[in-house]
């Protein structure tokens, strides 16, 4: 689990080109959008592609992303859950 969270943080930083951030800057429960990391709707779309490409999870409605991308912890749980099925 910790590994997956670490991996997600690295991917988020790389995929979204967050040059100013290191993995240590993102806490597991930090809000990724809004007042937290400050990500926006374009980032959400980038993350949807990441989910598809790297984890084989497809979202058809971008609105679903809102809940899933709440924080690294939530995202990791979601991926773990989906993979188990």
């Amino acid at each position: 689990m910790t590994e997956l969270r670490q991996e997600l943080k690295e991917k988020i930083i790389e995929q979204l080109n967050l040059e100013e951030f290191t993995v240590a800057d993102i806490a597991d429960d930090d809000a990724l959008f809004g007042d937290g990391l400050g990500l926006d709707s374009i980032d959400a779309l980038e993350l949807i592609v990441m989910l598809d490409k790297d984890y084989g999870i497809q979202l058809t409605d971008p609105k679903e992303g809102k809940e899933i991308f709440k924080s690294v912890a939530v995202l990791a749980d979601y991926i773990t859950d989906k993979r188990a099925k």
């Binding site: 995929q15 374009i42 980038e46 592609v49 598809d52």
Partner: peptide
Amino acid sequence: EFLTPTAFI
């Protein structure tokens, strides 16, 4: 496949 929006936008 697996295209992301940033470059397009």
